[in-house]
């Protein structure tokens, strides 16, 4: 090897590299791990799912079948799953934004006692295994008179209910489970946003004689808008992606009259329980399109794409 020549070459290359690549290449390098994981774990499966949604996929028998899978989508089970997921998303939005916001305001208030205790206890459900929680909630919402929920409503003079058999009551069970589980996380988002609101705003409002409610509506809520949009978006996504909760309440054999069938549950049922991976992919792609559409609509309505004044 000609060492001298190599050193010389190496030096000139190093200079060139530093000039040309040093600044341009570095950012790409830093995001490379993300890009790679995105390509491997997201883009590839997504493209493959699009491909599979036009195929019949069986061992040793993979064939293109055109739009057959998409035609199969127009069936009562699909509508039921879509309706269930939409209802669930609607109710979680209605509960999981105002409630955590209010709780966060309380937890942020200086007058509140044992703040850290409440913060921790509200956040703990988010750390609990959903499988464990699901089993406990199944027992809480059991139809027996001695079950927690039935004992609770009996104090108010109601009869015992078969919670997991009726469409509307089971939605209550699902939303209660979701609230228990996710409220803590949303509180965390709102809390951190609340703490970034400058105190001077409240002080000057005090000087102007604004009351607590006025301050809440005129300062807190508007300044929380960015985080609210964020929480809104992830709640929509979480609503349509819900599967485990329903799976835990009713088990793998499905729910009576499909009252607990969600979109992802439908993918699971068709793809893995009926081993129709092609049709499963079709439902997945459709779900992606629906969530994308709903999120875009919502972001548009909330003015996310508007330029700041």
């Amino acid at each position: 090897m000609n060492a001298g020549k190599q050193v010389q070459y190496g030096q000139s290359r190093a200079v060139r590299t530093r000039k040309i690549n040093g600044q341009k290449l570095a950012p790409y390098l830093f995001i490379l791990p993300f890009i790679l994981s995105f390509l491997i774990f997201f883009s590839y499966p997504l493209l493959n799912a699009i491909l599979m949604s036009f195929q019949r996929v069986l061992p040793g028998d993979v064939a293109f079948i055109g739009l057959d899978n998409y035609k199969k989508l127009l069936n009562p089970d699909f509508y039921k799953a879509l309706l269930n997921s939409t209802r669930y998303t609607f109710w979680t939005l209605l509960v999981l934004i105002p409630l955590p916001l209010l709780l966060a305001v309380f937890l942020n208030a200086k007058l509140m006692r044992a703040r850290n205790f409440f913060r921790a206890s509200l956040f703990i459900p988010a750390l609990t295994s959903i499988v464990v929680a699901g089993i406990i909630f199944r027992l809480i919402f059991s139809e027996l008179d001695g079950a927690i929920m039935n004992s609770f409503i009996s104090w108010f003079g109601f009869d015992s209910q078969k919670w997991l058999l009726s469409s509307s009551l089971s939605m209550v069970a699902l939303v209660v489970l979701a609230t228990w589980r996710w409220a803590g996380i949303n509180i965390l988002y709102f809390l951190s946003a609340l703490q970034s609101i400058p105190n001077e705003l409240y002080e000057s409002a005090d000087i102007d004689g604004a009351g607590t409610l006025n301050k809440f509506w005129k300062i807190t809520v508007p300044l929380l808008r960015p985080i609210t949009i964020y929480v809104f978006t992830i709640t929509i996504y979480g609503g349509y992606a819900m599967f485990t909760e329903s799976f835990m309440l009713w088990g793998s054999r499905g729910s009576p009259q499909n009252i607990g069938l969600t979109m992802v549950g439908y993918i699971y049922q068709q793809g893995f329980q009926y081993f129709d991976l092609g049709f499963g992919s079709t439902i997945g792609i459709t779900l992606l399109a629906i969530t994308l559409l709903v999120s875009m609509l919502q972001l548009n309505v909330l003015g996310f794409f508007k330029k700041e004044d």
Binding site: K162, L165, R253, G254, S255, P256, Q257, N258, Q269, Q273, Y274
Partner: peptide
């Protein structure tokens, strides 16, 4: 069978008995 069993468990039997 898997589809038929699901229909029996989740559709036919609950509608009649519940």
């Amino acid at each position: 069978s898997p589809k038929v069993f699901d229909a029996v468990r989740n559709e036919i039997v609950p509608k009649i008995f519940q």
